[in-house]
Amino acid sequence: ASVAVIAAGTQGNIFATSALRSMRFLQILRMVRMDRRGGTWKLLGSVVYAHSKELITAWYIGFLVLIFASFLVYLAEKDANSDFSSYADSLWWGTITLTTIGYGDKTPHTWLGRVLAAGFALLGISFFALPAGILGSGFALKVQEQHRQKHFEKRRMPAANLIQAAWRLYSTDMSRAYLTATWYYYDSILPSFRELALLFEHVQRARNGGLRPLEVRRAPVPDGAPSRYPPVATCHRPGSTSFCPGESSRMGIKDRIRMGSSQRRTGPSKQHLAPPTMPTSPSSEQVGEATSPTKVQKSWSFNDRTRFRASLRLKPRTSAEDAPSEEVAEEKSYQCELTVDDIMPAVKTVIRSIRILKFLVAKRKFKETLRPYDVKDVIEQYSAGHLDMLGRIKSLQTRVDQIVGRGPGDRKAREKGDKGPSDAEVVDEISMMGRVVKVEKQVQSIEHKLDLLLGFYSRCLRSGTSASLGAVQVPLFDPDITSDYHSPVDHEDISVSAQTLSISRSVSTNMD
């Protein structure tokens, strides 16, 4: 405001104040949320940038038409019409005319000016109207692209899951042992070998009828009888010197917790746990005396209480009078009846079946994303299906024409109403129809010849004498029936064969 007042002088105070007050009108834009329509302006900018070359070309040609039209109309009207006294007036008329506004304040009066105005109007309006069409088509394409992008975003994750499931299904095939990355992934998420051994031990116990592997080994086996189970490696608790092959000598807290839970599941009659010990102070733990958990001091820290809870689970003690015997301790020893080589084939089979199920689920979810969402998608899918159906029908028609023997030239002739090819031409065609016709002709010829021969033979049998045999009239074959199959017997006289037959029969009768 200060700059405006200084620039306008003393009389500019009122002007500056009114100008600043008129800017209050811009507050109405906040009512229509114009300040939060950044996406709309961004869309407009992207459309203009995408079609910038077309817009520049249309505007450039339109500007050239405007300059030439205004100049030529000015030359034609400057002497006869006072409205075109300057080139600026003519340029104003050209702008209003070519933009199809047409105020009518300035019009050419001479015939030359009117002809020039009409010609440049028809030429220039087309170029001035091009930017509107370019922007409209650009907006339509952009909206369609955003629509497809939205659908693509919805299909991206199911497609990625389907590709991942397909690759993992491919890589978990037993015949592709060189693909090891997927197996490394499952090695990292699978439970430890100790848990798998416990699982298979329970399965084997159920197969043995509820007997433990130790009891199965204690059962008497006759001499020479084959053992029911192959000899396997035996594993004891981590306190002993022997372990399962492939295990580490260090046992983690999870393994100890699972070991304690498995020992508690063996039965309360074979294992008696004394009350857990509780320390009397955060600094020292008295293991010899058993106290109640309700006497825990409230001033303990979080670490002390955590250690106390761990001691409740991981440090059970047995009383002296209830101490288990050596046999019970041997039964409680952890027996590992299986090795990694025995378990891994079954584990890989389970993983393979899981990968198949996940692949089928991913495939079903991806197919669900291909379903249409709204009416536009339904129409688009219907149009695509219609085009596909037309293509299939056209391909089927082409194959039928190839089989029947109607080529493209014959199809055009039928469409024009011309006469089709004759039967002889159809026979000569190298097509399925021509071959079928040729075979039918040959079969008819053979059938006719057989009928003639059978009739001749029956007449010979009825006559009974050589004289009557020679008097029999043998009809000749019709050459038209034989089609294109020409037998060497067709052109010979059958009477010669009949005479030869009669001579042979007379000779045979004389010999008798």
Rank of each mutant, 00 (worst) to 15 (best):
W167C: 00
L169P: 00
Y170H: 10
Y170D: 02
Y178H: 11
L179P: 03
Y186F: 03
L190V: 10
F193Y: 11
L196V: 12
L196Q: 09
A197V: 10
L199F: 12
L199S: 06
F200I: 06
R207H: 06
L211V: 13
R212P: 12
R212W: 07
R217P: 11
R217G: 07
R218G: 08
A219S: 13
P220S: 10
P231H: 14
A233T: 07
H236D: 15
S242C: 05
P245L: 10
P245A: 14
P245H: 09
S248C: 04
G252V: 06
I253T: 12
D255V: 12
I257T: 03
M259I: 07
T266R: 04
G267S: 09
P268H: 09
H272Q: 08
P275A: 04
T277R: 12
S284I: 09
V287L: 03
A290P: 15
T291A: 12
T291I: 07
S292G: 14
P293L: 10
T294I: 07
F308V: 15
R309G: 12
R313I: 05
R313G: 14
R317L: 15
R317G: 11
D322N: 15
E326G: 04
E331K: 13
S333C: 03
Y334N: 05
D342G: 06
I343L: 09
K348R: 09
S353C: 10
S353P: 10
R355W: 12
F359I: 13
A362P: 02
K363Q: 06
L370M: 13
D374V: 01
V378L: 10
A384T: 13
H386D: 03
L387V: 10
R392L: 02
K394R: 03
Q397L: 15
V400L: 13
D401G: 14
Q402R: 08
I403M: 08
I403V: 14
I403N: 02
I403L: 10
R411T: 06
K412T: 03
K412R: 04
G420W: 14
E425V: 14
E429K: 09
V436E: 06
V437L: 10
K441E: 09
S445C: 14
I446S: 11
E447D: 15
D451A: 11
D451E: 08
F456C: 14
Y457S: 07
C460S: 13
Q473R: 03
P475A: 13
T482P: 13
D490A: 14
I494V: 12
V496G: 08
A498G: 09
S502R: 14
N510D: 08
